[in-house]
Amino acid sequence: MQRRIRVSTWIIDLYSVIGVIALLSVLPLFISSYYTRLVAVGILYGIAATGFNILFGYTGLLSFGHAMFWGLGGYIIAIGLIKLGLSFPLSVLLSLTILVLVALGAGYISLRHTEIYFAMLTLALSQLAYAIMLKWRSLTGGDEGLYGIPRPLGTITHYYYLILLVSLITLIVVWLVLRSPIGLAFQTIRDNPGRAETIGYNVRRLRLLSFLISGIVTGIAGIMYVPLEGAITPEALYWTFSAEIVFMALLGGTRAFLGPFIGGIVYVFIRDYAMDITEYWLFVMGVILAILVYILPDGVVGTIYARIARLQRLKR
C-alpha cells in the first residue's frame, strides 16, 4: 500500500535538527570568537522560542510572560554560582528544580483561563517576577543585577559546544514529546479543546503539562545564557523580552518544528546588523521586523516548508 510508505514530516524535522546542529558545530572553525558568541546567543534565543512554541504553536496558548522562565532560570543559576558558591551542575539542578515549581504554580494559576485572559495572566505573573528580582537587592543586586558569573569550560568556543550539546538534547527531547501522542493531544487542544475533551483528553492536565515543558525549555536557555554573558539584569524578565520571544517564534514560523529555533538565530543577526550600521539600531530593527511581518507571515522556515510542499504537489 502506497500510502504507508509516505515519509513522516516528523522524520524530516529530525533530519533538519541534526543537519542544523551539524552545521552549527563546524561554524566556530570559520568565524571569529565575536561571531561564535553571537551564534551562541542566537541558539539560546532559539531554544527559548522553541519552548514558547510548545505552548503557542502546538497547544494554542499565547503566553506573554515567557521572559519569566528565561530570567528566573538565569537569576537562579547566577545566585547559585556566586551567592551560594555552588558548582555549575548543582546550580543548574537548583535552577531546574525552582523552574519546575514556578512553572507548575504559574501554570496552575494562568490556565484558569485561555486566550486573551491567559495572555494577561502570564504577563502579570512575569511582571511580578520582574518586580521581585528588581527589589530583592540582597539576593539579586537590584536594578544593577549580578555580575562576574564564571563561565564553565573557560573559552567561548568550549562553552559554545556545551551550549550546542544542551540544545541538541533539548531539541531532541522536545521533538520526541511533540511527535508522541502527547504532542498530538496538544494539537487537538489547540484546534478544538471542546472536542478534545469529548474524545477522551484531560484538557486541563495536558495544558499544564505543555506549560511545564514549555517553561522548562525556555528556562534551560536562560540558564545557559547567563554564564555566557557573565551577567544578568532584571531586563531579562521584563515584558518586552517576552514580546521578543514571541517575535522570534513567529519570525521562524510557529507551524514548523524548527521554525522558532531558526527564528532566534535570525533575530540575533538582524539585531547585530542593525547595531552595526547605526546607533539608532532599534529603529532599523523595528522597520525590518515590520517588513517581515508583511512579507513572511508564515515565518522563514514556515515559508520554506510551504514552498517545498507546493513543489511536491506540482510534481504529482
Binding site: 513522516s8 516528523w10 514529546v177 501522542p181 493531544a185 474524545i199 477522551g200
Partner: peptide
Amino acid sequence: AAIIGRRRQYYTLKSYD
C-alpha cells in the same frame, strides 16, 4: 487522535505518526 483519546494511550514516547 480520537482513537488514542479513547484508549487513553497518550503517555508514551512512541510516535503518533
